[in-house]
């Protein structure tokens, strides 16, 4: 074809882009969902699959290479890694979900209050949020954890939860500012409904789709934070098994090149995080479809 007479507008028509985008959207993350569901289910019913007591320290079988008896080998303390994976996964996933629950609750309350309140209150809350956001979260987490004393699953979820609400709160506030003056909210206010009624019945249904992606990503980062903290020796102690605390013995495992102690728990961690990310990305694309003008 003669290049000189190429019809440029048609080649680049927005329809083309739309089509490509839609097919990309339609691909549901089936594989990720199935793998994640499997991991969650097996962790929940770990009693059925565990071949050993995950907390039992078999001192005759420390540092054993994966074999028929110990499917994934044993760690430095002689615990069976196969059983620990499922047993510890429960704690890791629990921390992920529970701390996200806390942070989402805080974010919705703070964001909604800030969005509904007078501009002065709004400014103060937002500035405070900015300052809070500017402190490196790992440092705050370490400090608060130090005050709370020895960590357990609940305290660590609490600490992660109260330090990770800021970005969601900002989105909530923006959305609330957008819908606070709609007729139905004004009508509800005229009928004398309280703050929580408005938040629950009118605001949440409207902004839930725009924060869903961030909420899911929060689960992911909570799991990462827990494992990083436990690995550094500032999260869960070695006795409380989680994917992070299993890796806290990694320094010693390095000395003996016992790769299975490092690689196996990490692979489960990464697989879970990847599944969560894929599902999150799918939800983001789904939600963007309607109101993005791209």
């Amino acid at each position: 074809m003669d290049k000189q007479f190429e019809l440029v507008g048609i080649v680049n028509a927005p329809d083309d882009g739309e089509k490509g985008r839609k097919t990309a959207v339609k691909k549901r993350p089936v594989v990720s969902a199935v793998i994640l569901a499997l991991i969650v289910l097996i962790c929940l019913f770990c009693n059925l699959v565990m071949t050993k007591d995950p907390t039992y320290m078999d001192l005759y079988n420390c540092n054993v290479f994966p074999n028929g008896e110990f499917l994934f080998g044993t760690d430095m303390l002689g615990r069976d890694i196969f059983s620990m994976i499922w047993y510890g996964g429960r704690i890791s996933l629990f921390i992920g979900f529970f701390s996200t629950l806390i942070s989402t609750f805080l974010a919705i309350v703070i964001g909604s209050v800030s969005g509904l309140a007078s501009p002065a209150v709004d400014t103060v809350i937002m500035r405070a949020t900015d300052i809070f956001l500017s402190i490196p979260s790992l440092l705050i987490i370490i400090l608060i954890q130090a005050i709370l004393g020895t960590a357990n699953a609940l305290s660590i979820s609490f600490v992660i939860g109260i330090t990770s609400w800021t970005s969601i709160a900002k989105v909530v506030r923006t959305e609330v500012l957008r819908i606070r003056n709609s007729e139905y909210v004004i009508a509800a206010r005229c009928m004398g409904s309280g703050l929580f009624h408005i938040i629950l019945k009118h605001l949440i249904p409207n902004f839930i789709s725009s924060i869903m992606f961030m909420v899911i990503m929060n689960i992911r980062s909570a799991i990462v934070t827990e494992s990083t903290l436990s690995f550094m020796g500032m999260g869960l102690p070695v006795e409380i098994i989680s994917w992070g605390s299993m890796l806290s013995l990694a320094e010693r495992a390095l000395m003996t090149s016992s790769w299975w102690m490092i690689v196996i728990p990490g692979l489960f961690l990464v697989a879970t995080l990847l599944c969560i990310t894929n599902i999150g990305n799918y939800i983001r694309k789904e939600n963007n479809k309607s109101h993005s003008n791209l």
Partner: peptide, 9 residues
């Protein structure tokens, strides 16, 4: 998705 401490290890 890979936590940096694990990648480092």
């Amino acid at each position: 998705c890979i936590p940096e401490f694990w990648l480092a290890l």
